[in-house]
Nucleic acid binder design. Structure first.
Lengths: 136, 136
DNA sequence: CAGCATCCAATTAGATACTG
DNA sequence: CAGTATCTAATTGGATGCTG
């Protein structure tokens, strides 16, 4: 069992409560890079460099940080091959695989609804620009 | 159609590309407060104060900011009743409802797998503490 | 009640240089 | 190749005071 401050959580978890540990887990998952890393690993193990190239715009530092957090929380495994040059493989664990599809669904939604969102955004911005000053 | 810098996106969206607008949308969704707000609105419209009480730990500023972003992107609607004192209702739009279940799945996963994650975390931290210094 | 404005602290993220 | 370490810039977030 996992513990936090000596307490155990069997059920009744509620991410709406700030003190509930599920809030921390939600915070790990509710992250752009986590979503993309896990999605990439859904297709099988990848090396550090492969991930970096796949996740356009991520810096080496952020990738390292994201991977460490995911490893620490048991969503991915890290395998080091003591070769020269070194080779490190990252792979989703069983636990990780169980969440990948959920995260992927969110990413796919984003890709599918781009135009709905951009339309709404344009309309909102245009309305805001045309509106009289709230009060002057 | 939504546009960004005069470009239109019909298909082939890819959140793995930094310049793809779906990356921005993913960033909006991949957020702790977005997840919780949308989840709360899945049960029907709520007032500002109701949301604030429901989302334990959120500040007024963050709630306002989150709600504005969601409204701008068309996921929620905002209805002002010009009464005294004022009353403002927030409700998921059709577009918003279409993503709520996906986000809820992520939150529920967090709540269900607390112990798996905490176990992994404990094991990782213990291993790290026991490990010899990487190199001194 | 439902905010907005402001100031400040803390966290996050990028750039750069270096290593087994 | 796969990082670590460090410094700095930018963003986020919290606290407080005020308003229609």
């Amino acid at each position: 069992m996992g513990t936090i401050d000596g307490l155990r959580f069997y059920g009744g978890a509620d991410a709406y409560l700030a003190a509930c540990p599920s809030r921390q887990i939600l915070d790990l998952l509710a992250n752009k890079w986590t979503m993309l890393v896990m999605g990439a690993l859904g297709g099988g193990p990848l090396r550090f460099g492969e991930l970096r190239r796949r996740l356009d715009g991520i810096t080496q530092k952020m990738l390292t940080q994201t991977l460490r957090n995911l490893e620490r929380d048991g969503l991915i495994s890290r395998t080091v091959y003591p070769t020269i040059p070194p080779r490190v493989d990252y792979a989703a664990t069983d636990l990780g695989h169980s969440v990948i599809e959920l995260l992927k669904a969110v990413r796919v939604w984003s890709e599918k609804h781009i135009n709905d969102v951009l339309d709404a955004r344009d309309a909102y911005d245009e309305r805001a620009a045309r509106e009289p000053q709230p009060l002057a």
